[in-house]
Each structure stands twice: as structure tokens, then as C-alpha cells.
Computed example of a mutant assay.
Amino acid sequence: MNSLECVWVAVNIRLLITSELLVGCTDCISVLPAEPQVQIGTHTFTYDYVYGSSALSSSSVYNDCVAPLVDALFHGYNATVLAYGQF
């Protein structure tokens, strides 16, 4: 990650929940292996971090995305974390 960038975007794709699986829902988004990209149909989107629909601990997201910002705060930088959706 380039420390000069102003905005980082991370995407976490949650697992389907039991009720979704019971009615036959499937993932409509796929993660491209070894790339911070997701594919929806024929469209591909690139982000700074992509966490696929696997059993991911919240500490991984924190360590990758939030911890560097907390450290930067103590060095006089401003930082904001906006989290939307379910984890």
C-alpha cells in the first residue's frame, strides 16, 4: 500500500447465512485469486484489500486496514474508518 494515498478501500464478502442457503441462494460475486479484485458478472472491480467469503477473523481486517491508521494518528495524521454492512 502506498502511504501517500488518501483513501484505501477494503471489501469483505460475507458468507451466506443458513436461511439464504436453505432457499438455494448462491454467491453472485467472486474473488479473483491473488488479486484485490472482485467480479460480478462480466464486470471486474479493483480495491486495495479484498477479503473473500471465507472464515476470516476480524483481527485480519483490523491488522491490515485499521492498525496502520491508529499508528499514523500518533504521528500527527488524521484518519477515518468507515465500516458499512455486516461482518
Rank of each mutant, 00 (worst) to 15 (best):
F74M: 09
G52V: 01
C65F: 03
P68Q: 03
L73Y: 03
S53R: 04
G76P: 00
Y62C: 03
V70M: 09
H75D: 12
Y77T: 06
A72K: 06
F74P: 00
L69D: 06
P68I: 07
G52D: 10
F74D: 13
V61C: 05
H75G: 04
S54A: 14
Y49F: 13
L69I: 08
V50Y: 01
S59H: 12
A55H: 13
L56A: 11
G76I: 06
N78E: 08
L69T: 06
A67Y: 11
Y62F: 14
V61L: 13
L56D: 09
V61R: 02
V61G: 00
S54V: 09
N63H: 10
N78W: 07
L73G: 08
Y62Q: 11
G52Q: 00
S53V: 01
D64I: 00
A67C: 08
V50N: 01
V50G: 05
S58N: 11
S60V: 15
V61K: 01
V50K: 02
G76L: 08
G76Y: 12
A67V: 07
A55V: 14
S60R: 13
S58D: 12
F74E: 15
V61N: 02
P68C: 08
D71R: 15
N78M: 06
Y49P: 02
L56S: 07
Y49E: 06
A55I: 10
A55D: 15
A72M: 08
S60C: 12
N63E: 15
Y51W: 04
V70Y: 10
D64L: 01
S60K: 13
L69V: 07
L73V: 11
S57I: 10
V66C: 02
V70Q: 09
G76E: 08
G52L: 05
D64M: 03
L56W: 07
H75I: 11
Y51N: 01
S53Q: 03
A55L: 15
Y49I: 01
V50F: 01
C65Q: 01
C65P: 02
Y62H: 11
S58R: 09
Y51F: 14
N78K: 06
G76H: 07
V61S: 00
L73R: 12
C65L: 04
F74H: 14
Y49N: 03
A67D: 13
S53K: 02
L69H: 03
N63Y: 06
H75A: 11
G52T: 03
A67G: 07
F74K: 13
N63L: 13
L69P: 03
D64Y: 00
S60G: 07
S59R: 08
Y51H: 03
H75C: 10
L73S: 12
C65G: 04
L56F: 07
P68W: 05
C65V: 07
V50W: 02
S59D: 15
C65N: 03
V61T: 08
S53P: 07
Y49T: 01
A72D: 13
L73A: 09
S60N: 10
G52H: 06
S53L: 03
P68L: 06
